[in-house]
Amino acid sequence: MTINTDSALAMARLARLDLGAEPADLTKLAEDFDRIVAYMDILAEAETAGIEPMYSPMENTAGPRPDEVLEPEGSAGKAELILEQAPERVGRFFSVPRIF
C-alpha cells in the first residue's frame, strides 16, 4: 500500500487531526507514513492461514461485576471534580460550539 498526501489527509480527517497548511510538512509526513506502512507490508510474507488472531494475552479473567454501586474510596463529589476540569461550561453542562 502506498501512502500519498491525499491518503494521509483522509486518515487525519478520520482521526480529527489538522495536518497544517505547509505543503512541505505534509509531504514529509506522508513520506514517513509511507515508509512505515511499506515496512509493515513485510507481514504479507507471514504464513497465517488458519491461524486464530490473538487480540490480547489476557487469560483467566474474573467474570462481570454485580449490578451494584461499588465506588472506590474518596469518590464523594467526583462529579464536581470532573466538571471543574471542563475547558468550557454552561451551568452543569459541558459546552462546545453549536452543532446545528
Partner: peptide, 27 residues
C-alpha cells in the same frame, strides 16, 4: 504519527491486511 498509523490499519479496506494479519502474527 501513531494515531495516523493506527487509524489507517483499522480503516475500511485495510483492516484484514494489517490489523487482523498482525493479530495472527502475534499468535
Amino acid at each position: 504519527r501513531r494515531i495516523l498509523l493506527g487509524t489507517f490499519v483499522l480503516s475500511s479496506g485495510y483492516y484484514e491486511a494489517y490489523y487482523r494479519k498482525a493479530a495472527q502474527v502475534r499468535r
